[in-house]
Structure formats: structure tokens, C-alpha cells
């Protein structure tokens, strides 16, 4: 089985979010970038397929040279090869178009992406890739088993979960549950050394126009001060009469 894990390169969850150039660009100053958490769960599940079922695992990112350390980290965790499609990620659709091309040329059976990137929260790239390739698609995937060309996936739904049977080629949008938090791997010295000599292919992009573009960003209006109360009587009164939520 050939697996492709899509890696989005995102600001670490503790990052302060600021904008520059008249609020048109994300300010990367002092920001640490990491593998998108949803993708890290997917990558770790892919390592399981590699170790238990002999799958080969490639990782891919659509982005500029600045994303290479993130791809190297994925190699250090255990992926065999990395691909960077050399074009900035402008919108979900154009990224999906690049990824669909990588999947087609590489002949992957299983594509694992994340439910969403924690930066722009698009939640669209894996689904678009699946539709562009006529592959099957399972989103918010919290468990995945593959046998031959049959797959069984569990998907989180509002208020529960459902079990889905489908066939490869398959694209999933994964999240925590694909593996547990405690299964995540911190790259060790040996992994980091090996990653240096693993292939990282830079691929030129195909033509793909963005369907959306960002005009500007804004930050939420600052919040007023908290009202501290001494008793539950007062709290219930405020929730009823002032906030009108009960």
C-alpha cells in the first residue's frame, strides 16, 4: 500500500496572531511552525500501517521553501520520502489541485489529511482532493483499518460516531482518535539523522487558479472586564436579567 500524508505547516497553538502590511498578511515574526496537529495523528497512523502492514509512506506539502523543516520533521518521525510542491498555498482549492496531481502521478492508494488546518480552518482540502480524483472520502475520521482494497473507518458525527465501509483509493480527513495523544512520537536523534539523507523532492506546480482570496484580516474586538460576583444568587440573577441566557 502506498500512503500519502498531507502535511499542513501551521503556527504552533501558543502563537500570538498578528497581521502586517495593512492587515493583509499573517505576521510570522517570532512564530514557531509545526506539523498541523490533525496531520500528526494521521502521520502516526500511517507509521502503524508501515510497521504492521509494510506500507510505504510519503508526505507532501504545498508551500515555499520555509516549510521544509516541517517536512524534515515528518521524515524524522518515520516517513520514507517527502515532496514539496513549490508554490505558496493561496486557497484550499488551488492546494487541492496540486495535491490531486501528486496523488495521481504517485499512484497512492490511501491519502491521509487532517479534518482541518488550525490556521485557516478551511476543512476542505482532503474532500476536494477526493472529489477531483473520484476517490472515496471519509471526514472526521477517528479510526482506520485497511485490508487489501477494503477499508473500515469510524467517523465522528455530532453526538456520536458511525462506522463506514469503503474501498481504496480513499482519502481521509483525520483527527485525534486515529491514534491517541500518547502514541505521538517525538523524533529521536537517530530519526533526525536519518531524515537528513531521506529524499525531499521539490516539484514544480501545475496550473491552478485560486477561487477565493483574502482581502484583509481583523482581530476580535477587545473584551470588557469580567464581572466577579460573590454568590450564586447574584450569578443566576445576572444570567437571567442581564445576559438573558437562562
Amino acid at each position: 500500500m502506498k500512503i500519502l500524508v498531507c502535511i499542513s505547516h501551521v503556527p504552533d497553538t501558543t502563537s500570538k496572531i498578528n497581521f502586517t502590511d495593512g492587515d493583509t498578511k499573517f505576521d510570522t515574526n517570532g512564530v514557531q511552525f509545526v506539523i498541523n496537529p490533525n496531520d500528526e495523528f494521521g502521520l502516526t497512523r500511517a507509521m502503524w500501517f508501515k510497521e504492521k502492514q509494510g506500507a510505504s509512506v510519503h508526505v507532501v506539502n504545498v508551500g515555499g521553501p520555509e516549510t521544509e523543516p516541517t517536512l524534515r520533521k515528518a521524515l524524522a518521525i518515520g516517513a520514507d520520502e517527502a515532496i514539496r510542491v513549490n508554490t505558496p498555498a493561496t486557497d484550499g482549492y488551488s492546494v487541492a489541485k496540486q495535491l490531486a496531481n501528486v496523488v495521481k502521478e504517485g499512484g497512492y492508494d490511501l491519502v491521509i489529511g487532517g479534518r482541518e488546518s488550525i490556521d485557516y480552518n478551511g476543512g476542505m482540502v482532503p474532500g476536494m482532493v477526493a472529489k477531483m480524483l473520484d476517490a472515496n472520502f471519509v471526514n472526521t475520521c477517528i479510526n482506520l483499518e485497511v485490508e487489501g482494497d477494503s477499508a473500515t473507518a469510524i467517523r465522528e458525527i455530532d453526538g456520536g460516531k458511525e462506522t463506514i465501509k469503503t474501498k481504496l483509493p480513499l482519502v481521509v480527513g483525520g483527527q485525534k482518535g486515529l491514534v491517541e495523544e500518547s502514541d505521538l512520537r517525538i523524533p529521536n536523534m537517530r530519526g533526525i539523522m536519518q531524515a537528513r539523507s531521506k529524499p525531499l523532492h521539490v516539484k514544480e506546480p501545475v496550473d491552478a487558479n485560486a477561487e477565493t482570496n483574502t482581502n484583509s484580516f481583523e482581530k476580535p474586538a477587545p473584551k470588557g472586564d469580567v464581572k466577579l460576583v460573590d454568590s450564586v444568587d447574584e450569578l443566576v440573577n445576572l444570567l437571567h436579567n442581564e445576559a438573558k441566557v437562562i
Binding site: T212, N213, K219
Partner: peptide, 17 residues
């Protein structure tokens, strides 16, 4: 206008299609 960065900010985005 839509929320991005998990509600830490908003983006004003144009749809061209």
C-alpha cells in the same frame, strides 16, 4: 467575513467563482 486561526481572528475573503 469568516473566523480563522480558531476564532483568534477573522478574514474578509472574496469568492471569485
Amino acid at each position: 467575513k469568516h473566523s480563522v486561526f480558531t476564532n483568534k481572528a477573522f478574514s474578509n475573503t472574496e469568492i471569485n467563482t
